[in-house]
Amino acid sequence: MPPYVLPDKCDGCQGEKAPLCELVCPGNLMVVEKNTGKAVCREPGDCWDCMTCTKSCARQAIQTRIQYQLAFYPGKLIPLVGPRSVTWTLVDCHGNVERFIMRTLAGEEDDEI
């Protein structure tokens, strides 16, 4: 499920010390292009689909798409990261929506981290 960046949402992480997706990608794949100021995955086929960039993006600018050679279009999986949980929205090819709230850290949601 390589990451694809929506140009209207990505702002190149202005104000951050480093663009977040570029900072975190385990494969060194996400780069903010100098001429556009927006992030791009330099080689979608090299991605392991760990979704770290997608979860890290402050503007939800990154969509992960399943490789078309493996599955039909469209369909979406969108994570919304909270302090101690992540809320996943799964939309299948027919538009049916399922939602999952998964714990990520022990403790109460509003505890200080």
Binding site: M1, T64, L90, C93
Partner: peptide
């Protein structure tokens, strides 16, 4: 997570 999207698609 890719498997969950794979099933959905």
């Amino acid at each position: 997570p890719c498997l969950v999207l794979y099933w959905a698609c």
